[in-house]
């Protein structure tokens, strides 16, 4: 009964969703003429290169124009990690070794993971270092690095993560982000002022775009540490013995 009610309601919602989509035809140019800056998108597309000398407009928006938002986003991730830790917190008995309950992997998986891990990490680092030039950035690179750690965590039963190191990396990265923002406040006048620090440079150079690459590198490290932390917490739960 409830099922059919739900389906009925959802069909009505779907009907109105379709009607709504009729108002936004697929592929129509809603940005408008870039030069007259009539929309936000046009403004970003026009001003990103001259004002920030960042090639990737999405990066410029995420890190610079909406930098506050990203700072909040990183905070949400941090809170999620903390919340996860506190929800799944288990008091360790005295002298009990921290141990993941996993089956021992085969030698092939172990060697393969070890072989792959540096390349995955390198890819992740590449992605967030080139965040302002190519697709990708801190979040993507951090996630890639976390998958590398995931590989190691799954392959090696007793793979030890330095929790102190994770915490340090996360904290330092967060402080860097906020510190750059405050530095901009001191020198340039606004929080997260772009050209406060190394200068804008030329578009498509590796060192260009002011503080954007630095922030994205910090974000990359932070996200990598946080996501790895999430995985580590989830993997170290003892399943019920039944």
């Amino acid at each position: 009964m409830k099922k059919y009610l739900a389906i009925f309601l959802l069909l009505i919602v779907g009907f109105y969703l379709i009607q709504a989509f009729n108002l936004v035809p697929f592929g129509a140019n809603r940005v408008g003429n870039i030069d007259d800056e009539s929309t936000v998108g046009a403004y970003y597309l026009k001003n990103t290169v001259p004002k920030t000398s960042v090639a990737n407009v999405v990066t410029a928006i995420v890190v610079n124009y909406r930098g506050f938002d990203t700072l909040g986003e990183v905070t949400v991730l941090f809170l999620a990690t903390t919340g996860l830790g506190s929800i799944l917190f288990r008091k360790r008995k005295h002298g009990e070794e921290e141990e993941r309950v996993l089956k021992e992997s085969s030698q092939l998986v172990k060697i393969g993971s070890r072989l792959l891990f540096p390349f995955i990490a390198l890819l992740g680092i590449y992605v967030f270092i080139h965040g302002h030039l190519t697709p990708g950035g801190g979040f993507q690179g951090g996630a890639i690095i976390a998958t590398g750690f995931l590989l190691m965590l799954v392959a090696y039963k007793n793979y030890k993560l330095g929790h102190g190191a994770l915490t340090w990396i996360e904290s330092l990265a967060g402080i860097t982000f906020a510190g750059i923002g405050i530095w901009g406040l001191i020198t340039g006048g606004t929080f997260l002022e772009n050209n406060a620090f190394p200068g804008l440079g030329n578009v498509n150079d590796l060192i260009s775009g002011g503080v954007i690459p630095i922030i994205y590198i910090a974000v990359g490290f932070k996200v990598a540490a946080e996501l790895t932390g999430v995985l580590d917490i989830l993997l170290s739960i003892k399943p019920n013995k039944n």
């Binding site: 970003y44 597309l45 290169v49 928006i61 909406r66 190519t134 697709p135 498509n204």
Partner: peptide, 21 residues
Amino acid sequence: PIFSPSVIDSKPLMVDPVPQA
């Protein structure tokens, strides 16, 4: 919406970057 070296001067038509962000 990425200004690679080859397109930086030609100002091509780009998709809206805001939803992507």
